[in-house]
Design a protein around this nucleic acid. Structure first.
Length: 776
DNA sequence: GGAGGCCTCGGAAGG
DNA sequence: CGAGGCCTCC
């Protein structure tokens, strides 16, 4: 492309934001206002203006965003752009911490623990301290420690902080500070950092080493931060420190799209940015290029309900477009069916491609109904989210060996594979080793590698096996150092026994696990080959160590997808941030689901849910369709649902409500009081059974009709009244749809059995609800 | 060490 | 309901 006329592609405000390169700048970028374009052109403009890319730091929200932006910039300014420091906070500062590690007492080959590693370590510590795991749940303790680190509160400061300590006492967990202290110590001994440490230790580095602060202030003369509304305190301080010398700081964000406060993001960072830099220049990108007027205006009408926001007015001169349709379904399954049908019709009428559609939901659990319905209509789809490649067991197992080859002190990696594949080192021996390490304040590896010195009560056979393990790991370490990444990795996979172990497993899961291992090795091979063509320092960059550096920071979206990509996208709204689709369906718009039940107690939480809805709506280019169900399965029980308040917050002129008015429908169907619908065996009986001393088993359910493959059978003590409900419901179905048929109910239930046929899954479930049925 | 029974618990999710 | 953890039993 022609690289010189990029400024011509920008509107007036965008161009000003690009050209204003000196001093503090805040760009408030409304949804669909060309934010990415401004950011990339701004950087390109800096480089063209003679700024060395080495002096530019650009921080993004995801690795994917960084990669795409870097490619774009390189296409404008040439290969020089590759020298940019661009990446997520975590990847950039991990890189710096590896360079400066010795300043804070870490080796540069430190391991990065992912959340799973951290929780597993916390679990061990909680046990070692003799605390009750049911009270000190590892996930909860992890969140608590994470929140503290994000507020730059060390374990010492934590124990001295009266507010935090009294919070912990109040929640009956007064000893979290001890867990925190021990956790930090164990990470240090293992030469490991968790995700939050990457930011926390960067802060320590910059705070305690003025030379370091100065060095990086000088280096990063131009700093850009994307998605600034989602930064936390720790990130805020890093940016503030680094920018303090030159104040060439540019933050880009949209307060209306701040949706990550639950993990520490602080919307105040953007709301108060002006206070930090009084001579700040602010640019507001308010023209939306993505969506129809209807969608932009509807989204505005929703967000207007929020109190706390920066003043801006997003507008568009795109076409008016279709009204936002609201669909109403009987159950979650019928909702899926209706959505799938709409996708099907759109494909026909608009000649749209599957990849033009997105189905967005509040919780991952909602994907199932959508998935089933799409499959029935043969519509290709892809579900985003769920278990990532790098978090699969077999992948983490092999990576644990790689980790040990690079840093044998890595405690979590040792615990993971010291006895996998099985080599006769049992739980008892491992516990003795951990205890010895703890008593002597050394790492587990130090004990393993010098077993004889610690005089453990371990029999000589096991001691020999532990010794063999140590020899193997040291051998792997030498391989990692001397051989290129792929060669070393492949040897380790074989010599460790992992490859063989999985190869011998011929179950479908085993085969798939073996394939995953192969895929990881392929990635390693690609990495080796790719690095070999790079001009700079060919040796160093080809090692297993360099491959492993950021592996903990990768996620599935970073993996190339070689599959056919012409598919309907199914994902949570959080995952959809930054994406856009011509046709968007937002499903499950029910009070207590979206907004989530847990967000109803505070104004702040509710406002964040509303921003989430705003994000969802503004993903749409051509049409947005909302849907809700009047009843939905939750943990096996059918519960009643009310339409979400967000539907009524939409300006009426932009929406088209369902054809069936609610009142008429309820009359036809004769809805009862909500409580009687759900079958509550679980709550009441389990509660009773759990009373101390009670031996009562869950009693056989009463009033229960069972439905299996359309065969209906009744419990012996079945209440005849419910049978009348069933008959009445079937009658209504028949009248209304003409298709619902009772195949055999003569004599009303001969032998307590009947066969029924339902016109659709949704109607079947509505009927079940009528008769208080339970699917078996 | 693996299979199977029992209990518990259930938010969204980047790095 | 169903996933995941834990315990028990072989």
């Amino acid at each position: 492309m022609s690289s010189s006329d990029y400024l011509a592609e920008l509107n007036e405000v965008q161009r000003q934001a690009v050209e204003c390169t000196q001093g503090p700048v805040m760009i408030i970028a409304g949804a669909g206002s060309g934010k990415t374009r401004v950011l990339t052109y701004r950087i390109a403009h800096l480089i063209r203006g003679g700024i060395d890319p080495f002096n530019i730091l650009s921080l993004t929200f995801t690795n994917k965003a960084a990669r795409e932006m870097k490619d774009r910039i390189t296409s404008i300014v040439g290969n020089n752009g590759k020298n940019l420091w661009m990446g997520t906070f975590h990847s950039v500062f991990a890189k710096i911490l590896r360079i400066e590690a010795q300043k804070i007492g870490f080796p540069s080959n430190f391991t990065i623990y992912d959340a799973e590693d951290s929780k597993s370590l916390l679990k061990d510590i909680i046990r070692e301290l003799g605390l009750d795991e049911k009270i000190y749940k590892p996930a909860l303790v992890y969140n608590r420690i994470s929140a503290a680190k994000n507020m730059l509160i060390s374990s010492q400061a934590y124990s001295l902080n009266e507010r935090i300590m009294s919070e912990d006492k109040l929640s009956a967990k007064p000893r979290i500070s001890e867990v925190y202290a021990k956790y930090s110590n164990r990470c240090f001994k293992a030469a490991a950092m968790d995700f939050d440490d990457l930011l926390f230790k960067t802060n320590v580095l910059l705070r305690d080493h003025p030379d370091m602060l100065q060095k990086y202030q000088e280096k990063f003369r131009y700093i850009l931060v994307d998605e600034y509304q989602d930064t936390n305190f720790s990130q805020y301080v890093i940016v503030k420190q680094l920018a303090a010398r030159f104040e060439n700081i540019c933050v880009v964000g949209d307060d209306a799209q701040s949706i990550y406060s639950f993990r520490g993001a602080n919307i105040q960072n953007i709301l108060n940015f002006e206070k930090d830099y009084p001579d700040l220049k602010t640019f507001k990108l308010e023209q939306n290029y993505r969506s129809t007027q209807t969608i932009v205006n509807a989204a505005n009408s929703v967000i207007a309900n929020n109190k706390e926001q920066l003043n801006k007015k997003v507008w568009t001169d795109n076409v008016t477009g279709e009204k936002i349709r609201v669909m109403r379904a009987l159950t979650d399954n019928e909702e899926g069916y209706q959505v799938a049908r709409s996708v099907f019709d759109r494909r026909m009428n608009d000649q749209a491609r599957p990849s033009d559609f997105a189905i967005l939901y509040r919780t991952n659990a909602q994907s199932r109904a959508m998935e089933e319905a799409l499959r029935k209509l043969n519509i290709p789809y892809k579900i985003y989210g769920g278990l990532s490649f790098y978090h699969r067991k077999e992948i983490k197992d092999l990576l644990a060996y790689f980790r040990l080859a690079i840093n044998p002190h890595d405690e979590e990696a040792i615990k993971r594979i010291i006895n996998y594949p099985v080599r006769g080192i049992g739980q008892t021996s491992i516990e003795k080793i951990i205890l010895a390490a703890s008593d002597n304040d050394v790492s587990i590896w130090t004990v393993i590698d010098n077993l004889a010195d610690f005089k453990l009560d371990i029999n000589s056979g096991t001691a020999g096996k532990i010794n063999d393990f140590a020899v193997m790991i040291k051998n792997f370490g030498r391989m990692a150092e001397s051989k290129p990444a792929y060669e070393a990795g492949n040897s380790i996979a074989n010599a460790s026994g992992i490859a063989r172990d999985l190869y011998n497993d011929k179950t479908p899961e085993g085969v798939s696990r073996h394939e995953n291992i192969q895929e990881l090795l392929n990635a390693l091979k690609e990495f080796s080959d790719e690095q070999a063509t790079e001009p700079r320092e060919p040796r160093e960059s080809q090692t297993l160590e360099s491959f492993m550096q950021d592996i903990a920071l990768l996620t599935d979206t970073d993996k190339d997808d070689k599959d056919d990509n012409n598919r309907v996208s199914l994902m949570t709204i959080h995952a959809a941030k930054g994406l856009e689709f011509p046709y968007v369906f937002i499903v499950g718009l029910e009070e207590n689901l979206f907004p989530s039940q847990m967000a109803l107690s505070s104004r702040e939480d509710l406002e964040e849910e509303r921003r989430l809805f705003y994000v969802a709506l503004t993903r749409a280019e051509k049409t947005a369709t909302l849907s809700y169900a009047v009843s939905r399965y939750k943990w096996g029980n059918l519960i009643n649902c009310e339409p979400s308040r967000f539907i009524s917050e939409l300006d009426e002129q932009h929406i088209e409500m369902p054809v069936l008015p609610v009142s008429q429908d309820e009359e036809t169907w004769g809805v009862r009081s909500p409580k009687s619908f759900s079958y509550k065996r679980n709550q009441t009986d389990t509660a009773k059974k759990n009373l101390p001393g009670s031996t009562e088993k869950t009693p056989a359910p009463k009033n229960l009709l069972r439905l299996k493959n359309n065969n209906l059978s009744a419990a012996p003590n079945y209440n005849p009244e419910d049978l009348r409900d069933l008959a009445a419901g079937m009658q209504v179905l028949h009248e209304r749809f003409g298709t619902g048929t009772v195949v055999s109910m003569e004599g009303i239930f001969p032998n307590n059995k009947a066969t029924v046929q339902f016109p659709s899954v949704g109607q079947k479930q509505l009927l079940l609800r009528f008769a208080r049925l339970k699917i078996v």
